[in-house]
């Protein structure tokens, strides 16, 4: 598994696309705000998954740890079949939200990111299009 992390509007997807175009290594599938439902991917497939906020949203009534684990386990499952690249938009540095649900969302997101980063071989932070390898190698 690989993680691309950075603030909103920093060019994370653009970076992933550029990198994958430069070294074509499989069929790319993009998923935004949802996890792939089917289970018939092959090692040729590259799954680029983004907008975790919307993936968490339907589960927001559950416990924070449970939310993070459910999503994490599904990604581990998918990573066994295909190459998984997670686009993680950092949302943890603002003012604590007033709304209870928004706070929960933010917490669950942070928890999930921690899991993803610890599991991933490569973690790359993107700052306005420029990459910084935090762990492992590049994409």
């Amino acid at each position: 598994m690989q993680v691309i992390i950075g603030g909103a509007n920093n060019g994370k997807r653009k970076f992933v696309k550029q990198q994958l175009m430069q070294h074509p290594s499989g069929k790319i599938h993009f998923f935004e705000g949802e996890l792939p439902k089917k289970d018939s991917f092959s090692t040729e497939d590259i799954l680029v998954i983004g907008n975790f906020k919307n993936i968490i949203l339907p589960k927001v009534h559950l416990d924070e740890v449970v939310i993070a684990e459910e999503i994490f386990n599904r990604l581990i499952e998918l990573n066994k079949q295909a190459r998984v690249i997670c686009i993680c938009t950092d949302i943890g540095r603002g003012v604590v939200p007033m709304e209870k649900e928004e706070r929960k969302l933010r917490d669950a997101c942070g928890r999930l990111y921690q899991n993803l980063i610890s599991e991933s071989e490569d973690v790359i932070r993107i700052w306005y299009g420029l990459p910084e390898v935090l762990k492992g190698e590049g994409l």
Binding site: A8, N10, K53, D90, I91, G92, G94, P97, E102
Partner: peptide, 15 residues
Amino acid sequence: FDEQSSTYSEVNYYR
């Protein structure tokens, strides 16, 4: 850019 998107579309547009 490191906080949650806003509930105000104007703020998100600006960002």
